[in-house]
């Protein structure tokens, strides 16, 4: 464990908590893409099946349980409890265009052709594009609530910190996982446009609104 990975995990945890609290307190999921949240729940489910097979550390197990619990709670709020506030007309990204290619790629490019490893690879590839429905929805509505932009900032920051963690681990431990690194780079690049808007607008107190 190094400071970059720990900060990355805490940033990820912050994002997940911010979103869940925002929806719970405002009793509304307006502006939130339910499709992205379903994809994240799928990412955690397929990646953390090893909760049932191996124990790595209390920290590792605790965080995985929190991630899975919060992501399913968020999906539950969006599609069940607060369904009336879900903005389905703007959440129209075709997720099958993500899941099918990612599923195929996981079968073709992986470290080991075993069920757990293929599911882990699928989850790594899926996570790198899971935010697309959310970004697409913001481009369609042309704006995002400020709290939603903070959620996206911490979510994007987490994988960027993981990239530094992988540089650190390669240099100090010789650890190197090409699949996670390439997917992490793609994932972080997808946030660049948003990061620019976040820094130039939200941090200056303006509302994030895209040129309609």
């Amino acid at each position: 464990m190094n400071i970059f990975r720990l900060t990355g995990d805490l940033s990820h945890l912050a994002a997940i908590i911010i979103l869940l609290l925002k929806i719970w307190k405002s009793r509304s999921c307006a502006g939130i893409s339910g499709k992205s949240q379903v994809l994240f729940a799928l990412v955690f489910t397929t990646r953390y099946l090893d909760l049932l097979t191996s124990f790595i550390s209390l920290y590792n197990t605790t965080m995985k349980v929190i991630y899975i619990g919060c992501s399913y709670a968020t999906v539950y709020l969006i599609y069940m409890k607060l369904k009336a506030t879900y903005d389905g007309n703007h959440d129209t990204f075709r997720v099958e265009f993500l899941i099918v290619p990612v599923g195929g790629l996981a079968f073709l490019v992986n470290h080991d052709f075993s069920p757990l490893e293929i599911l882990w690879t699928f989850s790594i590839y899926l996570e790198s594009v899971a935010i697309l429905p959310q970004l697409f929805m913001i481009s369609k509505t042309g704006e995002a609530e400020t709290i939603t932009t903070h959620y996206l900032f911490f979510l994007g920051l987490y994988r960027a910190l993981y990239l530094i963690n992988w540089i650190w681990r390669f240099y100090f431990e010789g650890f190197f996982d090409m699949i996670a690194i390439v997917a992490g780079v793609v994932q972080t690049i997808l946030y660049c446009d948003f990061f620019y808007l976040y820094v130039t607008k939200v941090l200056k107190g303006k509302k994030l609104s895209l040129p309609a």
Binding site: I56, W120, F175
Partner: peptide, 10 residues
Amino acid sequence: ETIKTDKDEL
């Protein structure tokens, strides 16, 4: 050499 330790990352 590049080793693939067990999946210890989240």
